[in-house]
Each structure stands twice: as C-alpha cells, then as structure tokens.
Design a protein around this nucleic acid. Structure first.
Lengths: 323, 323
DNA sequence: GGCATTCCATGCCGACGGGGCATAGGATTG
DNA sequence: CAATCCTATGCCCCGTCGGCATGGAATGCC
C-alpha cells in the first residue's frame, strides 16, 4: 500500500473527481485513475461509485478515508520531526530576488512560511540575476531567485517556469484564448521592461526569431508603470507571469511564438561551494511547493513543451547515496 | 517517504543490523543498505552510527523511530479495516492438502490463523494433487495446496518451494554441508514415498537425469513409516522438506543434482471460474506469509535458481486494473 | 600478527511500476 | 443530436528498486 495511492485516494475523495485531484496533485488524470484502480484492487474493495460523471465514495471508502488520513498526517509528523532535528526550523536566511518576484510571489509566500517556521528570519535583498551571482559568491545571501542557468559552480532547483505575458486594457480585446503570438503584437505600441529583466531579453529574442520589429513605446524598470499605462489603453505591456496584475483592470494573454509559449525557466540558486543550511533547503522546498500551488495549472499541457520530464522533487539524486 | 523505507528503518533499528533485517524482510542486504541510505538522504539526517560492524541508532534516529512505527501501525490499521469491510474475516473455508502438508505446515499455521480470524472456520480435506483438481472443479473445496502447475483453468499463488530431503540416522553421516547429490544416494537403500507424492516423482526424474538406478528398499504412503525406519538406520528416506522431522533423531540433507537442489514449486491453487471469497484470499496471504517466515531462509541464494524473479506479492497483476 | 569471517557499501544490470500522451467510452447539457 | 466534460485504457518510456558480485572495514581466532 503505497502512500502515494493513499494521497491520491484522499484527494479524489475530497474533491469528488479524478481530474480535479489530478490538478491538485499535479500529475496526469490517467495516472490517478490508475492509482485508484490499483488501490481498489489491492484492498479488494470498491471505494468509489460512478454517479453522473463524477465519483462518490462508497460506504467502505468513507470508512477507510479516516484511517488513510491518519496515515498521511502521521507521515507528515515524521517529516516535521525530521525537519526539526535537522535544524531546519530556525536561523537567519538571506534571500535575493528581483523586485517583481518579491512583490508577486514572496509577498504572499513569506507570511505563510513564517507561520510554519516562526524561527526562521528571512532577510530579503532586491537584486536582478547578475547582481545575485556576485552576492552568492560573496556569501552575502544564501539563495537567489532568478532565470535558470546551467552553471557548474551553482546548484539550482527549478521553480515553475514564467511565461511572458501581454497585458492590455480589456477594450483592446487582446488574444482570443488567453494566448497571442509575437507577430500579433507587432501592431501594438509596446510597454517593455528594462533589459536587465530576463523576460525582456527573452521577448527580444522571440521577436528576432519571429522576424518582428517591436514597436517600443516605453522602457521602464518599474512593472507597475507599465501596468498602469496598459490599463488606460496606452499600449501593451510585456511582463513576466509572476507579476501581479490583480490590482489592475486589464486583460492578460500569454505570448507565444509558433504555438509554444515564450517561457523562461526560473530557479532558486546557490553557490555550490557553500553548504546550504538545513532551513534554507526547507525554504526552497516550501517555496517550490507554494509556487506550484498558486501558478496556473499547465496540465493538460496543450502547449507542448519540448520534451522534458517532470521534475523529480525529493528524490535521492541518482544513487549518490552514501552514509 | 516510501513506507517501504520506513519498514526497513524500523526493522534495522530493532535488529541493530542490516543483514538481520534483510533476513526478516526477505530481501537482499544491499537493497536494505540502500534504503537506509536513501532515507537518511531524504530526511537529511544520520539515523545510524557505525559501531564495530553493526549499526546503532543515533539520537535523531531514536526520536524518529516512534513516529515511524506509528505510521506503520496506522497503515496496518487501514489494511485490517479493509479486510473487515471486504468480509475477509468470516466464513467457512474449505482447504485441501496432502497429509504431510497438513501435519507439518497447517497444524502449526491454523492455530495462529484462528487467532487472527476467529470467525473463519477452516475445513480441511486430505487429498493429493489429482484428487484436489477434481474437488476444486466440483467446488468441494475453495483452495488446494499442491505442486505448482501452469494450468489455464486454475489460478495459483506460489508458496515457498519444497526441496527433496534425504533423511538418515546420524550415524550414517549423510551429506557434508547439509547437501547430498543424487549420485551419492545410489549406494544407500532408499525409503521412498508412493508415486502419488510429487516429491517421489521429482526424485525419480532426478535419478533418471543423473542416470542413477535407485535402490528402493521400501515404498510407503506414510512419511512417518519412512522416518521411523530411517531413524533406526534401515535406509535413507526421501521426503519433501515440508515434512516435520523434529520428532525423530535423524540427520537431514537437501538432495541436489548438479549443484542445484531437487526442488518443486508448491502453490495454493483454485478454480479460476469460481470467485474466491474474500476470506480465502486473506487465507492465502496469511499462509504464504507464514510459510516464508518459518522456512529456512534461502538468502543468499547460493543455489542458483534458473532465473525467476521473486514473486510479486500483492501487486496489481500486470495492469489488469479495472474498476 | 596474519588469516578467516562477518558485515556494510557500491557498481552494474534487468525488470517492474508508474507516469505521460492519445484516445475511446459514457454521461450530461444545450 | 452535437458539444462537452469526465473517466478508463492502450502504448511507451524512464526511473526506481532489487538481485548479484565484489570491495573494504572491523572483528575474532589461532
């Protein structure tokens, strides 16, 4: 009886639907469907009845649910105790991140994090990628959130990717299905970020590839400036999807190029030579988890990525298991 | 955090040794060693210290142990509740088995089984293989214990294999390392079972292959007759390893042929057309488990079997997972 | 003190499980 | 009856796990 199956069972039972559970657990619906089937076969019981196009617990399922939950909470207890023993619950953690990431992600993540780890004091530093690199090397911060690079002297952990978003006043009616091609943007006056922002460079690259000459109306270091202008119809702002737009009355669309979203890989990185304190590892875990939960679910991946398997999250890295 | 790792952790902690735990869990020592390593990496903690050539829990390990046990007992609770819901805990179960199996295995298994399942009434029938087939087809018994056959109309579950044993008075000093080759038996007067016993036919086949003409002194349907005669030095008895010999003052050796043990695959079988009641499934599980625990550990398998992977014990059979 | 023994770790390999993708089958809604 | 939404399943690939063989360290024995 694998705990994964139990997690699945609980999720499906709570949401009353395999596909909803698939979204929550961030794996495909078929996999879940099978897990439920496997579990039922393993237990020799029917846990769900098909009613309409959903599933509801049978009496047996209902009874097992509580027990299963207990197992999962106990398992969580093990994990937490390990965390405490590891010293993962107290210390000063120094984090560098670009301003828009701080505003959008960290501002909402940190309170939640502080609740679980009241004794970890997070110290934030505003810095774009290159500045982070220096700080990491100097040991001025533990980790930095930035565009992913494969640099042998930095260890990194991938976070959910950030898409380039086109933002405009609703009246412009930009992008049909929440998607707009780079070529489709050529017509509009564009509100772009400073080239220090990786999304800007990414967008420029996409334009070159698409052979589009963007009509740059304004270049700014402040995303909010762009958003405010976009809101009143003064052009289309291009921002990273991590940027919050909920305070503005705008319409957003993901920028694509040849059906593929213009996307950058975001990572949390640290200097390989410095050993990351346990609470920093925990922080990375928690952040990655949080971002996955809040970001728009990309499944089913209509936008075919170029291969690439899901990231194995807490797996002993390729049999480098010594003790 | 896989429950398998937790099981391993608890076992190793209790026994203070990876290899002992390997015997208990019936998997190889390297696998366990790795599981411990993986778990430690996953938790980011050192659970064991190396002291001498054994392992002892660290303080952290000590603290986690209790939590891990809780998870496992809760998991067991899930399994048990499922069993009850399945109706796996009450009914009348009819079992057919050869006399020596009843005497050796079932006589000790049934009390233990009855303790856990007081409401399952086991009804025993003495029958050798062919007779069982008839009874199974007629529905006179639910399951039969016998030599494994690949018959499409019968479902079966493998039990630990039975070796042919050569039994003689200690004075004969038979078999050096608890093993004797078929050729080495040619010299002795043999006490054989009736050909109705599969071990007899197996032994005959081994003799033919080894080009040995056995010197048959007596042929009997009663293993105890053979044992009694063997005890007083009147020949060497050939019996299945399931036969109890502990009441006799004899020396036993496994019969081999070309380094390989003369071995038969034992299984518990049932008619595929009849659905096995839940408590019968449970019975099969419990029996297989019991036999594994009592039978001489065959690991490390010095006696190379002809390929053949371990039996997957409660796994959804090859993706035939519908619900 | 050297040799045999015992126990743990690790490289290698094969097989099974589980996940993704594509798609069929069913039910519901308009 | 078509469109839509949801679940089930065939196919395929990759990661994981277990077995086997072996290395290496510590211990015991003579």
């Amino acid at each position: 009886m694998d705990t994964r199956r139990l997690k699945t069972f609980v999720a499906v039972a709570e949401l009353g639907s395999v596909s909803k559970a698939a979204v929550r657990l961030r794996i495909g619906q078929p996999a879940l469907s099978r897990q439920i089937g496997d579990l039922q076969q393993e237990l020799g019981l029917t846990l769900f009845d098909h009613v309409g196009r959903g599933l509801v617990l049978t009496g047996e399922g209902e009874q097992l649910l509580a027990d299963c939950r207990r197992v999962l909470t106990d398992l969580e207890a093990v994990r937490e105790r390990a965390e405490v023993l590891r010293g993962g619950d107290r210390g000063v953690l120094k984090v560098a991140a670009p301003p828009h990431t701080i505003e959008s992600v960290l501002s909402r993540f940190l309170p939640r994090y502080a609740e679980r780890f009241p004794n970890v004091h997070v110290h934030l530093t505003e810095a774009l990628g290159p500045a982070q690199t220096t700080m990491l090397e100097r040991g001025e911060v533990h980790v930095g959130i930035r565009l992913y690079r494969a640099d042998p002297s930095f260890e990194s952990r991938l976070l959910p990717p950030a898409d380039a978003l086109a933002v405009a006043a609703p009246s412009l009616n930009l992008g049909q299905a929440g998607v707009i091609d780079v070529r489709g943007l050529a017509a509009y006056p564009l509100l772009l970020l400073d080239p220090g922002y990786s999304v800007r460079r990414l967008f420029d690259a996409a334009c070159r590839l698409a052979d589009v000459r963007p009509n740059v109306m304004l270049e700014s270091r402040a995303p909010h400036t762009l958003l405010a202008l976009a809101e009143i119809g003064h052009g289309v702002a291009i921002i990273p999807s991590l940027q919050r737009t909920d305070r503005y009355d705008v319409r957003v669309a993901r920028v694509t190029h040849g059906r593929k979203p213009v996307r950058e890989r975001v990572a949390i990185q640290w200097d390989r030579r410095r050993r990351l304190p346990p609470y920093a590892v925990t922080f990375c875990d928690a952040l990655a988890d949080y971002m996955h939960t809040i970001l728009p679910i990309t499944y089913p991946t209509k936008t075919k990525e170029t291969g690439g398997r899901r990231q194995s999250v807490s797996r002993s890295s390729q049999r480098v298991r010594s003790f």
